[in-house]
């Protein structure tokens, strides 16, 4: 399965890509929402992992855009922010998963369909 990772932190993005490939996924890394928009639109069978705190277009706005696609991919939010911030950002949005940092491989495996 193809997994898009939209995360501006180089360390998190790199390690996430490593573990996802390790699990057996195809990984496409983007450092912000803008760079994801430049490529092909994620498809229904894909998963997009979105960091809530992105430079430029906010993570929540990207989540909204993805969920409103005609054939939305699976959307998983990752964040290191407080619950209050998450609730405020995601009000009205129902992503397929929300994972709080620090992440571990089991939590990731749980929210992703098996490769």
């Amino acid at each position: 399965m193809r997994v898009h990772v939209v995360e501006d932190d180089a360390g998190v993005s790199d390690s996430l890509a490593l573990i996802l490939r390790n699990i057996g996924h195809d990984v496409v890394s983007h450092r912000d929402a803008e760079s994801l928009f430049k490529g092909p639109v994620p498809e229904a069978g894909d998963t997009v992992i979105v960091d809530l705190s992105l430079p430029g277009i906010p993570g929540a706005q990207l989540v909204r855009w993805l969920l409103n696609l005609a054939a939305p991919p699976r959307v998983v939010v990752i964040t290191g922010q407080s619950q209050g911030f998450i609730d405020h950002q995601l009000r009205g949005l129902m992503p397929d998963g929300v994972m709080r940092k620090p992440l571990d491989v089991d939590a990731i495996a749980r929210v992703l369909p098996h490769a």
């Binding site: 360390g11 790199d14 390690s15 390790n22 290191g80 940092k101 620090p102 992440l103 571990d104």
Partner: peptide, 18 residues
Amino acid sequence: IAHELNQPLTALMLYLQA
């Protein structure tokens, strides 16, 4: 600051788990 610490901790954890 907790958020900022979460970034390297996440990366560290994922590298080790990989």
